[in-house]
Design a protein around this nucleic acid. Sequence first.
DNA 1: CAATCGTGATGACGCAGGTTAATTTTGGTG
DNA 2: CACCAAAATTAACCTGCGTCATCACGATTG
Lengths: 248, 248
Amino acid sequence: MFTERFLRDKSGVSLEPAERDRLEAAISEIQTLAPRRTVVRAGEPIDQSTLLVEGIMSRYIDDRHGLRQLVAVHLPGDFVDLHAYPLKILDHDVATMTAVTIAIVPHAELDAITREMPQLTRKLWFATLVDAAIHRAWLFRFGRLDAIGRVAHFLCETNARLVSAGLSDGRRFALGLTQTDLAEICGLTNVHVNRVMRHLREERLCIFRSSLVEILDPERLATRGQFDPAYLYIDHRTPAHSSSNPRP
Amino acid sequence: MFTERFLRDKSGVSLEPAERDRLEAAISEIQTLAPRRTVVRAGEPIDQSTLLVEGIMSRYIDDRHGLRQLVAVHLPGDFVDLHAYPLKILDHDVATMTAVTIAIVPHAELDAITREMPQLTRKLWFATLVDAAIHRAWLFRFGRLDAIGRVAHFLCETNARLVSAGLSDGRRFALGLTQTDLAEICGLTNVHVNRVMRHLREERLCIFRSSLVEILDPERLATRGQFDPAYLYIDHRTPAHSSSNPRP
DNA sequence: CAATCGTGATGACGCAGGTTAATTTTGGTG
DNA sequence: CACCAAAATTAACCTGCGTCATCACGATTG
């Protein structure tokens, strides 16, 4: 079940068994990739999309001098570049951050789905719009929050998404990112991210150890980052999947 | 023809006559609204979407202290909150910036369209994804550009979109925004936007006069803002609509 | 026509975060 | 276990932009 985490817990769009089966059948291939590999380049026509099964991926835009701005971070269950199906050409690159497992879905299969299953089509559309909502939250983060707030907001967001994927218990989760990665995500320098992490540590809000993030005080961290999870469209009627394996 | 500008010049998704007719038929109502009115509030369920016919609208997220971060600016032809159709509840507010004319499309009509016209559905989906691409360009603007670059980038973007809507000749366009509006858009203070405008004026790049924007040197302005219009998905095979009325 | 208000313009000053550069710690590997 | 590269940490210094304050101008309005 490679699509197991896709749209899991999303409000009002949980997949019917038939829809999930159809999506599984649409997968043409499973791949594993090494960390920090570019998967899709901006401007090149593509005819398939990538469902992230395991690991972390990113989307970014290069500036003129080769520095990059991350515009999205993707976690297991995300349909990373589903938007490439209607767009055909992307405005950004897609890359792995950690080692990953991905499922490839050819656009021809999506064509068939849109013809035959309008309800499932609307759910796929929904999935791309949650990504857009996350873009907007990032815009808020950049425009309204200081450095500490930005990092706090990102950690709250990632925690909430990982809880929904069954990969965090709400306080501790594995995240194979460096402080420099965090800096690219939050639009800061790695030096300043380090200052921020020290602050969060001394305030007993959060400890970041590259491989393990530990949120000591979720509520205060959320307040500091003005984090309100509504934009993630997570259905709270379904409790967190305690059956899953939050990695220590 | 209220939908006349919708998806105009967008690469590969121009509407068939039958599709345009269907969309026109889906409009339940035409409204005119005063400037600076909130149209949709975050968190409230909605069952209709708004097509902007005339004027400028915005989408924004409030912070805890009531300050707001703009996350999108919409121009004539934009389907402002089409994403509310799959999402049902929005993560942000929608408001007018100038006086506007809007067309209301009930979600029940969109239901019918998704059931009956999968090709048109894909084009509607496409339209929401171009908005997401613009979000990403804004993230780049915030993360990688200084104040002058941000304003330059926004002016280039707006010019390109207005050209495609037939509302700019590529050098001059009407834009009913104040410097304070620009500040909210670019994540700056109005004071600093004023300094930026003086710089752009003195460098002979652009003159901003609230009601009229005049781009003196499009190429250098684009360079200064690292502006590459690819993310707008405008089809350049179709030349600008010289038949339309760029307002002086 | 005085009063008010929105918009634009400009100067003085302070600070959050960038820049540069070293040093230490960590984790992987032969 | 010695070695090395990547990551984390810290310090010293600098600057772009925010903050606060004031002033000018044109458009409304009583």
